[in-house]
């Protein structure tokens, strides 16, 4: 260490380090407090202790795992593992107060009937909270984030029209075993004029079109053995949940985009299109019994039921 010098020429007289550049540029020496130096050494010691206790250094494609232990449950077995934040999360998800509270509610829901759940505001709030996540993860890809569906492809779950039934029990059944929507194609059964007549009649059922000679001819086809539409859609056209047959008398169209058409001709065309080609293989709801737990499916059934039109 060099000797210090004191520059008395400047406005202040502060000790300098004795270094000089270009003849007269000097460095002031304002010494740090010594405890600061000790604090620095303490952080060094802390860092070294940390390397031993916690995961720290990368080694090849692995890392030093440290010496502190934690216990997690893996495949139903309690195992001791080296601590890291991921295992801490795993342990937290199981034993944190929030996780325990969730467990309590899950058990409560599992042991309750749909009737009991629907009558309990707290269980409903729980079902909506958990169901929201389950729905987002598993259902929203097709049915949309709010269950609004896509006309022609995926049914709307937020309205009160249900192809397969809208009670919690039938929604549950739909979730467990899935559904396969089917309607035969009528392109060989009906000629173009007949298709147009049937479409005209179908539109009168929900008030989209006025009764006419064409709709009367269509009604004969619909209710007669030639078309046989009433097998599934019933004589009144109100549909049959056991077959997944749509109610044709309400204002809701799941496949043919009738509300999206401005003219009667346009509406007739989309209905004709549907009757001509039928529905085959395009309206498949997968079964969830092997993918989700029983309680999750129950919670989802409640969630879907309350989206907008559960019965």
């Amino acid at each position: 260490m060099s000797d210090a010098s004191t520059d008395k020429s400047g406005p202040t007289s502060v000790q300098t380090t004795g270094h000089a550049w270009d003849g007269d540029i000097q460095e002031f020496n304002n010494p740090l407090p010594r405890w600061w130096l000790w604090s620095f050494y303490a952080t060094v010691v802390f860092a070294i202790l940390y390397w031993f206790l916690y995961p720290a250094w990368p080694v090849g494609d692995s890392w030093t795992r440290g010496m502190s232990d934690t216990t997690i449950v893996r495949d139903g077995q309690e195992v001791d593992v080296r601590w890291n934040t991921r295992y801490e999360l795993v342990a937290d998800m199981r034993s944190s107060p929030a996780a325990q509270r969730q467990q309590e509610y899950t058990e409560l829901v599992a042991g309750s009937s749909f009737e009991e759940i629907l009558n309990d505001p707290e269980m409903m709030a729980f079902a909506r909270s958990v169901g929201n996540g389950l729905f987002g993860d598993n259902c929203a890809a097709c049915h949309g984030r709010g269950g609004q569906g896509v006309v022609g492809l995926f049914p709307n779950l937020a309205d009160d029209d249900w192809l397969w039934g809208g009670t919690p029990e039938t929604i549950h059944e739909t979730l467990v075993n899935g559904r396969n929507g089917f309607m035969p194609a009528f392109e060989r059964t009906f000629d173009e004029e007949q298709l147009s007549d049937v479409a005209e009649y179908v539109l009168t059922l929900s008030g989209e079109a006025q009764s006419s000679e064409a709709s009367a001819r269509g009604a004969a086809l619909f209710q007669g053995e030639e078309g046989g539409c009433y097998y599934c859609h019933t004589k009144e056209g109100t549909g049959l949940a056991s077959q997944g047959a749509a109610n044709l008398t309400d204002g809701i169209w799941s496949i043919a985009d009738v509300p999206g058409q401005d003219t009667l001709e346009g509406k007739r065309q989309v209905v004709m299109e549907l009757v001509r080609n039928g529905v085959m293989g395009s309206r498949v709801m997968p079964a969830w019994k092997d993918r989700l737990s029983e309680t999750d499916i129950k919670l989802l059934a409640v969630y879907v039921h309350q989206l907008g039109g559960g019965q």
Binding site: G18, P33, R34
Partner: peptide, 14 residues
């Protein structure tokens, strides 16, 4: 320039 006082880089507390 040098007046013989050694440079103190860390100052002990008084």
């Amino acid at each position: 320039m040098s007046d013989g006082v050694p440079v103190q880089l860390y100052k002990p507390r008084t």
